[in-house]
Design a protein around this nucleic acid. Structure first.
Lengths: 95, 95
DNA sequence: TTATATGATAACATATTTGTTATCGTTAGT
DNA sequence: ACTAACGATAACAAATATGTTATCATATAA
């Protein structure tokens, strides 16, 4: 009986997470990762970003630790002071 | 006393909508517009897209008529069968 | 050691989205 | 006239995100 040990093993366990679900999770990891990276590169704390964006610090912390899935509303407000926005792009636009 | 008549006049009325708010609304209009365009170009009805995406038809209708602001969750699920996804881009990436 | 700032989180209230089921008015086709 | 499919919407329940306030553990600096 195989033990699931690493995070990537967990993510690839068909029994646990469907392909569509995994795709969605990977998407969110990448999305949130870029957001955190942008904030840190600007040298902003969560509290400073909260003041700039109007989104409260606990909400930002919950986003960044992926405790919640933001509304595009909230994501936009947080990304905006970081100099980023959201866009719809074709899937085959390989990164 | 100036009467606000057109939609763009309404959107540009400083008294009614703050610049940040207007920016957010324009962003959502563009985002949702692209989503509707993609669905119609694929020749899909809301009910068909509901079946493909797992998001119910009333929810899709509410999104497209901008009665609600979707979670990135929901937006992703709807865009995926249309061949699109969401990406974070720098604001100065002029379209 | 003390002070300060950080991200994370608890607890609860509030706001909002989404699901569910059903139906409406309209349009297109027969 | 009838049917079928469409998008929109009503009404309500359920799920989830966000606000609010406070605190925690940790790291850093004085």
């Amino acid at each position: 009986m195989k033990q699931v040990k690493t995070f990537s093993e967990y993510m690839n366990d068909e029994e646990r997470v469907s392909p569509a679900e995994r795709e969605k999770i990977n998407f969110e990891i990448e999305l949130i990762g870029k957001m955190v990276e942008a904030r840190e590169q600007k040298g902003l704390s969560q509290r400073e970003l909260a003041r700039l964006s109007g989104v409260k610090q606990p909400a930002i912390a919950r986003l960044e630790s992926m405790k919640t899935t933001p509304q595009i509303d909230t994501l936009f407000k947080v990304l905006n002071p970081l100099g980023y926005t959201i866009s719809i792009v074709p899937i085959n636009a390989k990164k």
